[in-house]
Amino acid sequence: MGTITDAHVPFITPQFRFQWEEVQNCHVILYPEGMVKLSASAGEILRRCDGLRNVGAIITDLEQQFPGADLGPDVRKFLEDAHAHGWIRTR
């Protein structure tokens, strides 16, 4: 499992489903017979994993929307976890 760099372009693994759940008031990851509820920040990150933007662009976008913090390390750490869970792949 390689570390996630800013040049990687992450996308949701086709065998998982990522969606907003109104009743839970959060984003979730769905897979066979299971569901992971995501924190608001995790949802904001995965929402941007659209297979078009690279990690660097995702971090820039997040820092514009939530100014005042250096989000890079946390975002990379979360994406590495998400990758280890199989939720995302990169190209």
């Binding site: 759940e21 109104e22 009743v23 839970q24 979730v28 769905l30 017979e33 299971g34 569901m35």
Partner: peptide, 8 residues
């Protein structure tokens, strides 16, 4: 509508 997500 109630919020069920998994359907078997």
């Amino acid at each position: 509508k109630m919020g069920a997500t998994q359907l078997g």
